[in-house]
Amino acid sequence: MSTTHTKPAAEPIETLEQKFHRLEAEWDADTAVLSNPNKNMEHPAMQAITALGEPVVPLILRELQAGPSLLVWALPEIVGAHPEFEGNVSTMTNAWLQWGREKGLA
């Protein structure tokens, strides 16, 4: 009796952009109505976004171009603190977008 071994289908490769949007959607679904910012930042999807490191920064900046978002809180985690950018979310978003333009990332 012969057996046929079929090769398992290859897992589709997720691009960085796809992974970012998947994680962002998970994060948003779980935290959008929460008031506790610690739960926003400590959510596994947010932790996974920050763990993507500097390559994800242009994707975050692109999201911020659409409007202020708590995603801006991920940027200091990834590239380091910029105390001069501190303010509310809108202020931080504008400051980080300006930073991104100067770096050629936005």
Binding site: S35, P37, M41, E42, W73, E86, M92
Partner: peptide
Amino acid sequence: ADPDYNCIAWAANDTSNYWWPVGRAPRI
């Protein structure tokens, strides 16, 4: 939708800040 403030701020009549006692995120 406006991410500049949360429910605690809103209850306190503030629409410019994110009110919370402790946090990692900047500008709490």
